[in-house]
Design a protein around this nucleic acid. Structure first.
Lengths: 303, 303
DNA sequence: TTCGTCATGATTAAACGTGATCATTTGGAA
DNA sequence: TTCCAAATGATCACGTTTAATCATGACGAA
């Protein structure tokens, strides 16, 4: 069976011309190389080199082996180096899952700095897990969860990044039916009877507007329309085609054409958090991500 | 340092799911795999797998290693098989050199059968060696020499394939200046004083017409013109633009428009031979080539 | 609990590596 | 040319390291 050693020997032999120098290059004795190849020859039943004067010449089989070596040895060497990268925590993969659509916008503002500082980390954003983000974390489908709903769960750790309020974004073009909103600075459930609501296309029990306000009040908006893309949703809101619930920092980005109101008398208050598997924070690049998120988190969001 | 064993273990582990089954697949004990990977882990300083229930899950570094394994292990396995091919003599390379231009035509008639019977042999024809074919054989630049001039040389073996006569090909369109040729069936050196000679572009001491007849007689043809391509030369001869020396079997292919004459009173008699390095005939495919050449040699030539 | 699975330690066998020595070759000096 | 010293690889005998096995213990799942 051809082993890595054999390939390296054949390669060094070809490069240096003599077995003695090849041995020096590999930090081994000439005798060791001779033995090692002899073993392979006996096993394979084919000569790999033959004496040519006081040198050595590769046989056809030896030449073939050299070709294989030139192809594979660098790949093995590269794999060694990569493994070192994993050991040093320089290298790794960071698959990020999200449980709130606007979080994606926030992530995008954070990512450039992270990529810059961690060039060997493969970052991927995994959209739409089959189950919950929690499950995805547990099954190693993702390595990091961005969520507005941190929980205490065995085997997972959550780190709060910053608090925010979920507010209703309403175009100034839109005439609200009565002055309730302006008087109190917030909207009650009944106000939604006259509003067209835009939501992300997920089940209602994952939308805080419903779980916190509308479902308890037993109120159904005048209409609801699912919208996939955040950008499209924002334009629809701007155009006054509907209203939607957004984090306050997201509303702030929309400019003066869009005002916002609290949702319900107390407002809906959340905090953005990062979820990891227990022990994941030992990885340097995980700490780096968390550091970036907490330091620049809110700033990045309102940027 | 990543060794082949490690790659095979990670691969088997991924394919079979448990270490125990992976061990069975590799004909090793579960303990062996555990130890082996543990060594690599300690050396590399990175965990490759971690317990997950009573199973094992690859870490990121382990996944990476699996990727490498899926790429490299099959290549190593293939190299093993190829080496077996060399051992069994099925596989090898046959670089053929030639010392006579028309030999090429003969080789081409022989080659299809050889390729058919030896699918794993890489055949190549090496044209124009820097030195002689003998040198090329000795330096392993070629493995087989086709030559009309077999010699007894230390370290080489020659096997005669078939005898032939070198004759002068002359178009019937061409009026020979006197009737000497027709009276005797051969041409003398002086006859060349009135002939335009076509030759391959090599030095005269490698052209039998010169070494055997013209140089000893001190005769120079009316003109000489070098022609590279055999096909072109044949057409020039057919058109009566000149004459050239060709093996008798080659002339026979030219049809009735071209007649031939012996060269000198005794004629120039050669024998086509194959030259090998000593011991090369131990290789099955070398014997196969020699067998084909001797059995079908002359038949193929006059085909 | 029991079964299935993996990790670990002790032990043994095999593989690997080394230095010394021998046989060849080669290139230059006599 | 002949002869010798240097260079090179093969091989031997020996010691070391690596790799395999078995036995056992720990742990989670059924």
């Amino acid at each position: 069976m051809i082993k890595r050693d054999h390939l390296e020997i054949v390669l060094a032999l070809h490069q240096s011309g003599t077995l003695t120098r090849a041995a020096a290059a590999l930090n081994l004795s000439q005798s060791a190389l001779s033995h090692s190849m002899r073993r392979l020859e006996q096993q394979a039943g084919v000569a790999l080199w033959e004496p040519d004067g006081r040198r050595i010449r590769l046989t056809q089989a030896g030449q073939y082996l050299r070709n294989v070596a030139e192809r594979l040895v660098p790949q093995l060497a590269d794999a060694d180096r990569t493994l070192e990268g994993y050991a040093a925590g320089r290298r790794g993969s960071l698959r990020i899952g999200m449980e709130c659509h606007p979080c994606y916008e926030w992530l995008l503002t954070l990512l450039p700095a992270f990529l810059e500082e961690n060039p060997e980390i493969e970052v991927d954003v995994v959209q739409g897990h089959r189950f919950s983000g929690i499950e995805a974390l547990k099954t190693h489908e993702i390595d990091l969860l961005i969520t507005p709903d941190p929980l205490v769960i065995d085997g997972l750790e959550f780190e709060a990044v910053f608090p925010y309020e979920l507010r209703l974004a309403v175009s100034t073009k839109l005439k609200l039916p009565d002055d309730h909103a302006h008087q109190n600075g917030y909207l009650s459930a009944v106000d939604f009877l006259d509003l067209d609501l835009l939501t992300y296309p997920v089940s209602r029990d994952r939308l805080d507007l419903f779980t916190e306000l509308l479902i308890p009040a037993g109120v159904e908006p005048r209409s609801t329309r699912p919208v996939e893309a955040t950008e499209v949703m924002l334009e629809l809101v701007r155009a006054g085609r509907g209203v939607t619930a957004l984090p306050d920092w997201m509303v702030a980005r929309l400019g003066e054409e869009v005002q916002s109101f609290g949702i319900g008398p107390g407002g809906i208050h959340k905090r953005l958090a990062l979820g990891f598997r227990a022990g994941a924070l030992e990885l340097p690049y995980m700490r780096a991500f968390l550091g970036l998120a907490t330091q620049n988190g809110r700033a990045a969001a309102t940027d």
